[in-house]
């Protein structure tokens, strides 16, 4: 290990960099307090090129450090890239970092077998399609990458996001970024946006602006994608509201109005409870509300 002046290193050369994002506040604070504990690995060149330690060197620069601890390594470019990838494997890479690793391997003309081997180490399916998606992600701009890292987006959601063109994606990311949404809710939202795109040829985000939360956005999209179902739900809710059912009576209807029957649930503790429930049911039957509900289930 040597102490290397920062001036001797080309800190802008990112050919082996897979880390994303490079800014790391916690690491910077730690380096500020006790310095760089783990030495960087630098490629023996003039100037020296970073193989591992991009976050550390960014923090060092920011903190105004003049020297850093490092190991100088003689290696071919392909060996250096593999070293960078393997050095990072242990810490659990995010999707964008995986994308960077794979894109760099593809650009460096690594044989497919080798790339697929690394994909397995990254817990990815070694398939051409998956590789294609990751390479596409690596070539995307910061807004998408930041969104994916922040939301911990799954492979499926990354695939969905890549289906939109750049303009649509920009709009979608700005729509979704302020929301706290789970990956499964994100998936439902993206699936509905894709359906709109496939059906209409483009995504029109008007009418979706400033949703209260993820559920509100999902509800608005559902209205656009499932107008019949939404209108039936609305009618059902109106009828149920008019019925003014007490908490111990519930009418359950198939969520998609497929089943031709409804379930009526009663919670009773005494004969009087049952009598009261039956009276209430009789009243809503006489008022035609049961018929209205049954009509909804009959298409």
């Amino acid at each position: 290990m040597k102490t290397i002046p920062l001036n001797n290193i080309d800190t802008d050369d990112r050919r082996f960099c897979i880390s994303y994002p490079l800014e790391d506040k916690t690491l910077a604070e730690s380096i500020g307090e006790i310095g760089i504990v783990q030495p960087l690995i630098l490629l023996d060149a003039s100037p020296l090129i970073v193989i591992t330690g991009f976050k550390r060197i960014m923090s060092a620069k920011k903190l105004g450090l003049a020297n850093i601890p490092a190991i100088i390594k003689k290696a071919r470019a392909d060996e250096a890239l593999l070293l960078s990838i393997h050095d990072n494997l242990g810490r659990g890479l995010n999707a964008v970092e995986k994308a960077h690793a794979l894109e760099k391997m593809v650009s460096a003309d690594f044989p497919r077998q080798k790339i697929f081997g690394i994909m397995e180490l990254l817990s990815l399916k070694p398939h051409e399609k998956v590789l294609g998606n990751f390479v596409a992600l690596a070539n995307e701009g910061r807004p998408l990458k930041d969104f994916i890292v922040r939301h911990g987006a799954s492979m499926k959601n990354i695939e969905y996001l890549l289906k939109f063109d750049a303009r649509e994606r920009k709009g979608i990311i700005s729509l979704l970024s302020p929301l706290h949404i789970t990956d499964s809710l994100l998936r439902e939202i993206l699936e509905m946006l894709i359906l709109i795109r496939i059906r209409k040829g483009a995504v029109d985000l008007r009418g979706l602006r400033a949703p209260r939360d993820g559920r509100d956005l999902k509800a608005r999209l559902k209205k656009k994608n499932y107008p019949l179902l939404s209108s039936m739900e609305k009618r059902l809710s109106a009828v149920k509201q008019r019925c003014a059912l007490p908490p111990h009576i519930d009418i359950k209807i198939d969520p998609f109005f497929e089943k031709e029957y409804i379930d009526i649930l009663l919670k009773i503790k005494s004969e009087d409870d049952l009598r009261a429930a039956m009276e209430k049911l009789n009243a809503i039957l006489e008022d035609g509300y049961i018929r209205s509900i049954l009509e909804l289930t009959q298409g």
């Binding site: 499932y226 019949l228 179902l229 198939d254 497929e258 298409g299």
Partner: peptide, 18 residues
């Protein structure tokens, strides 16, 4: 994908009954 699909009682996707 044009129509309105729901998940039927048999688990298959089909157009809404209406």
């Amino acid at each position: 994908l044009y129509g309105e699909f729901i998940r039927g009682e048999d688990g298959k996707m089909r157009y809404i009954k209406q």
